[in-house]
Structure formats: structure tokens, C-alpha cells
Simulated scan of single mutants.
Amino acid sequence: MKIWLRMMAFTVLAALAMALVACGGGSSGGSSGGGQSSGPVTLEIGSKGEELAFDKTELRVAAGQTVTLRFKNNSAVQQHNWILVKGGDAEAAAIANAGLSAGPAANYLPADKSNILAESPLANGNETVEVTFTAPAAGTYIYICTVPGHYPLMQGKLIVTN
């Protein structure tokens, strides 16, 4: 009887594991947006209406993967952008602060872009913009909006796996 129960439990766990693997690997949309594949991936993210927030606060890709990020500004009146930061909170804050004086003509970005890994164009209300980049080395990276006043609330994490 014990062997039969163990075999049944093993079969159920194996079926569950296969179902989870089958459901997890899409190449666009979703909160994880891709993942372990080395082929190109398209991630979709947007703003949350008139809130100062992204609709996804975590995205996942594989190191070295070609990533096209499609950003939809779901606000009717506000501008937004999507900036991938090289570094942590201090670098993100510095980029956002320097963007204040840079203005919209410079996409609210500093002239020194050494701590920026990828940047979308500035998106007006109800506009979709794209940026294509190569995923950096494995790690966790911050993405932000640098439109004045948005950075403290509009941020998320790009998790890059091997």
C-alpha cells in the first residue's frame, strides 16, 4: 500500500511540474515576459492609467537575450518613459534628478548616459513606444520613469537570469 501511495504522489507531482513548465514559457506579455530562452523576446509593459505606476513591477529575461520592450502609456494626459538603470537606487535617483533639468527635448535624461542600459522614447498619452536592447549580465536591475516627479513611484525590477 505504501508503494502505491508513493507512486501516485510521484505521478501527480510529475504531472504538475510538466503543467507548470508548459504554462511558463511565453515570449511576450505576462509579468515574467519571457525567460530562459536565448532567442529574442518581446516584453509588454504599460503605465497604470493616471497613476504614477507601471502595470508590471517585475520583468524577467535571460542574459544576452535580445529584448524588445513595448511600453504603452495608458495615461490620457501624462508623459512617461522606461529607463533601465545600470546600478542601484543611488544611480537611479541621480539619473532622475539630472533629467529634471534636461527637459522633454532630452527625454528627461542626462547627457551622461553611462548608467543607462536602455531607454524608451518619451511616450505621450495613449502612445506606445519601443526600445530594443541586449539583456545585461545576470542580476537584478531597476527600471524607472524619469519624467519629473514620477521616479519615486514609477519603478520596477528587471531580473536577468543565466
Rank of each mutant, 00 (worst) to 15 (best):
T161Q: 12
A62I: 00
S28C: 04
R60Y: 06
Q65A: 14
I144E: 00
L100E: 02
Y141C: 12
V85T: 03
T11D: 03
Q65R: 13
G35N: 02
G156Q: 03
Y151K: 07
I83T: 06
N81V: 03
S47V: 02
G64N: 05
K48S: 05
F54T: 00
Q65L: 10
N162L: 07
E58S: 13
Y143I: 01
A111K: 08
S37P: 00
A111I: 07
G88T: 01
L122T: 02
P104Q: 15
G35Y: 04
S31N: 14
L100T: 11
A14Q: 10
N124W: 06
G29Q: 02
P110Q: 00
G34E: 04
T57N: 10
L13W: 12
T66M: 04
V147W: 10
I3V: 15
A94T: 02
H150V: 01
V160R: 01
S37H: 13
G88L: 04
N162G: 13
K113N: 08
A9L: 13
M154C: 14
R60D: 02
A138I: 00
R70W: 07
G35P: 06
G103C: 11
E119V: 01
A105L: 09
N115Y: 09
V12T: 15
Q65G: 02
P136T: 09
V147T: 15
A102R: 09
L69G: 08
M18W: 07
A90K: 14
A105P: 00
G26H: 12
L117H: 10
G46V: 08
G49T: 02
G24S: 15
A137P: 11
V41H: 01
P110E: 06
I95T: 03
A62G: 11
T68N: 10
G49E: 02
F133D: 00
